[in-house]
């Protein structure tokens, strides 16, 4: 059997933000990864490392001060080469997004079912009556009594709002779902329920998911592949098994050491002293260098390329130089 084509293939994605006339913040640099059909990819890293920016870059939802380059192939089409009008047809119909806080992601003055219905009707998937029926089914699927769809978002609890958001994301049967920390705003019990729901849905509907999270436990449980970001660059990517059992990059190793208390309220990790670099004044060498326990001279001056270390397992560190010279294959 031949290897399936990736659903989404991000290549050399670079995102800059114009901070003021001469200063640019380099939020993403040369980010590449693949998402295969029916898979869940975990995107992990400290706060501010560019996880949300990655998702918003792919969907092209960033503000006008952003500058994007690279390619984002979705089913073979480079999304970055489309016009805004063409891009709109892809949004939600093919690529849906669940936000960090469902609190404000739903419009407070529109009924929940109207907001779901809107997505279906917008993409002209079915006539209104049938669409209403579908809204009922969707609400039912995520565990909300369909008649509660007549209510407004503020009448929902936090968990219900996130469920409604998931129902909305599924409205057009997208082939890829982005979930940006879908549970951070919720309390622990509800978090587990919502994650369970996501897992369920993936099984039932067979879509691919890119899950952004702080929580390595969640990654272990839900994901097939993991992409570790640091300071806007991919430092390591591979299967869950590879990452958890043979992490190659010093950052990933530290990250796993600090687990399970990775889901820390403060933005920096307890076990790794120091803070991530400022995006407007990045070090010329390895971005992790100031905090790295294994750094050596070369790290200061030269940025390590992403190397293949095993089958579909990549890491960016000078220490891995001897392993397998495969920079640029991805």
């Amino acid at each position: 059997m031949t290897e399936p084509e990736p659903l989404l293939s991000v290549r050399h994605l670079t995102t800059l933000f114009e901070v003021n006339r001469k200063t640019y913040a380099c939020a993403l640099e040369d980010v590449s990864f693949d998402v295969y059909p029916y898979q869940t990819v975990g995107l992990v890293g400290e706060s501010g490392c560019g996880k949300s920016t990655t998702l918003l870059s792919i969907l092209r939802l960033l503000p006008p001060n952003a500058r994007l380059s690279g390619q984002v192939f979705f089913k073979g089409v480079d999304l970055l080469s489309l016009s805004e009008q063409q891009m709109r047809a892809y949004r939600w119909k093919e690529l849906a997004l669940i936000f960090q806080s469902a609190m404000n992601a739903l419009n407070p003055v529109l009924r929940v079912d109207e907001q779901i219905l809107e997505a279906i009707l917008l993409h002209r998937l079915m006539p209104r009556e049938q669409a209403r029926q579908r809204v009922h089914e969707l609400l039912d699927l995520v565990g909300i009594a369909p008649q509660r769809g007549r209510q407004y978002p503020f009448q929902f609890s936090g968990g219900m709002r996130q469920r409604a958001m998931i129902a909305m994301a599924l409205a057009c049967s997208p082939s890829l779902l982005f979930a940006d920390e879908p549970t951070t705003a919720l309390d622990v019990m509800i978090q587990a329920q919502v994650l369970e729901l996501l897992k369920d849905i993936q099984k039932k509907l067979g879509l691919a998911i890119v899950l952004v999270t702080h929580d390595l436990g969640v990654v272990a449980e839900l994901c097939d592949q993991v992409v570790v970001l640091y300071g806007g660059k991919v430092v390591e990517s591979g299967s869950v098994d590879q990452i958890y059992n043979s992490p190659q990059h010093p950052y990933t190793q530290k990250l796993l050491e600090s687990f399970p208390d990775l889901h820390h309220p403060s933005s920096t990790l307890a076990s790794i002293p120091g803070t991530p670099p400022r995006l407007t004044e990045l070090p010329p060498g390895c971005r992790f260098e100031p905090r790295c326990f294994a750094r050596f001279d070369r790290c200061r001056h030269e940025a390590p390329p992403l190397r293949q270390v095993a089958e579909k397992h990549y890491a960016a560190c000078h220490l891995l130089e001897g392993k397998s010279p495969n920079a640029g294959s991805i």
């Binding site: 800059l16 114009e18 640019y24 870059s57 092209r60 960033l62 503000p63 006008p64 001060n65 952003a66 500058r67 994007l68 380059s69 970055l80 080469s81 805004e84």
Partner: peptide, 16 residues
């Protein structure tokens, strides 16, 4: 705000 316009997409090789 969110309707102020779209992010600019740089052509291959274009800087900033």
């Amino acid at each position: 705000h969110h309707l102020e316009g779209e992010a600019r997409i740089l052509k291959h090789g274009e800087r900033k």
